[in-house]
């Protein structure tokens, strides 16, 4: 790891004023310090926002929720209001990583963490996303990589929180000292690698993520998230699914189905959503939604098994959201 200067800030304004000359924001530091220790990034200045109190906390309003980006995954997963009305989000935050990491990891940092592709994470490989012109995954080891919606870079979206927040139609507030605030939706937060492989998110170097805004779900909404890894203790998703169902009695008025570990950027599955809309939620309709969730997928040399996994993740999570099935013991981690 390189040597760096550290600016410890306690207010948003102080932090914003420090964001210059290649400075990088540090929240919990879980992801950033890993990248630095692995020698794939060498920022000269870190701006520590961990102690900015105004960026931490959960506010329930009539319109919905406002979550400060420094709120930890543990705090979100344990929040009674979120458990009651935003189950998908407490599921996602409560099943990411490990209990220790969830105490340290902030939800803002979770949304903005970089991909886990092992070539990207190794200083020995200089790939597209580090500004070079080659991807090592296609001819290399790609069992955990994307099965859809990629061209140049088949890495997968790592954030569990993003899968939930996309399902809830959330947006984030970005603030810069010069340009003030702007709001972007979760999906728009991410830059698809084909557009700009080194950019990852639309956040500019002088911007802070200052809030996550979640609209209040329509009455009758039920939701859930499940993450499947190869193992349950601190593993990354090999398949995951977020499900938000707006129910009208037994009929699903509207469904939002989201997936993380399938593609470079968190995605919705319009096919799966269509398979449920206007229908009763049953094992049959849930399985039908699962089946079409991977329509159009193009697996790589080693990850065709994910074509089996996502349909299962989707149907079981639909049933979980609808209250027709318990949490899957295979996704307990």
């Amino acid at each position: 790891m390189n040597r760096f200067a550290l600016a410890d800030c306690t207010t948003i304004d102080a932090a914003l004023s420090q964001l210059k000359d290649g400075a990088v924001v540090k929240a919990g530091g879980v992801d950033l310090l890993d990248r630095m220790k692995d020698g794939i990034e060498e920022p000269q200045r870190l701006v520590n926002i961990r102690n900015v109190a105004e960026l931490r906390g959960i506010r329930e309003t009539l319109q919905g929720l406002t979550v400060g980006p420094l709120t930890t995954l543990a705090e979100i997963s344990e929040h009674p209001g979120i458990r009651a009305h935003y189950q998908i989000l407490s599921d996602a935050c409560g099943h990411a990583a490990t209990p220790h990491i969830r105490n340290m990891a902030t939800v803002g940092g979770n949304l903005l963490q970089r991909v886990q592709c092992w070539y990207y994470r190794s200083a020995n490989f200089q790939c597209l996303r580090k500004g070079k012109d080659f991807c090592f995954a296609f001819e290399g080891l790609n069992q955990y990589h994307a099965i859809m919606e990629y061209t140049g870079c088949p890495s997968v979206a790592p954030s569990s929180a993003a899968v939930a927040l996309l399902g809830l139609g959330a947006s984030v507030e970005l603030t810069s000292a010069k340009r003030g605030k702007r709001t972007v939706g979760i999906r728009e937060l991410y830059v698809v690698p084909d557009a700009n492989p080194t950019k990852f998110t639309v956040i500019e170097p002088d911007e802070l993520l200052t809030a996550i805004v979640i609209p209040r779900p329509a009455p009758g909404t039920r939701s859930a998230y499940q993450k499947y890894g190869e193992k349950e203790s601190f593993d990354w998703a090999i398949a995951d699914a977020g499900v938000v169902l707006e129910m009208d009695g037994p009929i699903c008025r509207r469904a939002v189905i989201t997936m993380g570990a399938a593609s470079p950027v968190v995605r919705r599955s319009p096919q799966a959503e269509a398979a449920l809309a206007g229908k009763p939620v049953t094992e049959e309709t849930a399985r039908a939604a699962g089946r079409v969730s991977v329509e159009g997928a193009q697996p790589l040399s080693m990850n065709a098994y994910k074509l089996d996994l996502f349909p299962v993740a989707v149907y079981r999570t639909v049933l979980l959201a609808a209250g027709l099935r318990g949490r899957d013991p295979s996704a307990a981690g």
Binding site: Q116, W118, R121, S122, N124, F125, F136, G140, L141, W236
Partner: peptide, 14 residues
């Protein structure tokens, strides 16, 4: 990695 001969998961995570 078959083409480069380097271990891709030299940690206790991957």
């Amino acid at each position: 990695d078959p083409k480069y001969g380097l271990m891709v998961n030299p940690d206790l995570d991957l």
